[in-house]
Amino acid sequence: MTTTLVRPAPPSAARVALARTRLELRLFARERQQVVFSFAYPIVMMVVFGSVLGGDVLPGGVPFPQYFLAGIAATGIMLTSFQSIATSIAAEREAGQLERLQVLGTPPVAYFAGKAGLVLVTAAVQLALLLPVAHWGYDVPLPAAAADWATFGWVAVLGSLAGTVLGIAVAGLPGSAQSLTTGVTAFAVVLQFFSGVFFAFPELPGWMQQVAAVFPLKWLTQGMRSAFLPDEAAAFEVAGGWEHGRTALVLVAWVIIGVVVCTRTFRWRSAER
């Protein structure tokens, strides 16, 4: 065996990202509570709201369950991305797991990519369970046109990534993992109301709409409506249309700006003593 004296270059960020994604999925599968919560929450919400308000009809003649499916699909993505990522990063940091990654010289973007990989897989499973329940349980028509499915796809992916980035950013705020979890949960609940998950967005006060427009969830929900509601319903949106271009722009901006900012400001350790 020949021995060379030149140290090979460290593995690429992509290789580390792949290992991170595998690890995240394995750890997720071992958290039984988290698995049940992530997959059951949107279904339970669909059942509760579908059963109570199933007979209501919203502007444009859209039955409530159809409108609500868009909202709850968006919320599910927001919870598996924003909420679970923010809390898991804070917990990992507090447990010293991020210190190990730091001394290994892990590129932050590889760590982020592992989180994003987890989010994309869990969001896909979550939606794959939710849609049949809505369709067969509450007669929500699923999109017939391939274009609507394509919209559903890119909105779901961009929404997942934007939510992940928001979660990473929020995980950088000071405070203990416990206080961060509380704050993130409260923020997520408020954001859901502001973003038109539970109510028809156009009926919300203008200032709420404007606050919501800063965050990804409003755009994610609106994008989901454009996939699940009939085309005529577009007229009842605040802007009088689905705004696909603006939705894509806002979500992509969140991802790109978020990754750049988070890569520079990410903290591997709790604040110095």
Partner: peptide, 17 residues
């Protein structure tokens, strides 16, 4: 990172999940 690859760190926690 190339420098980090040349050092090994055993800190006070193991840092594994």
């Amino acid at each position: 990172r190339p420098w980090r690859a040349r050092i090994g760190v055993v800190s006070q926690g193991e840092g594994a999940a």
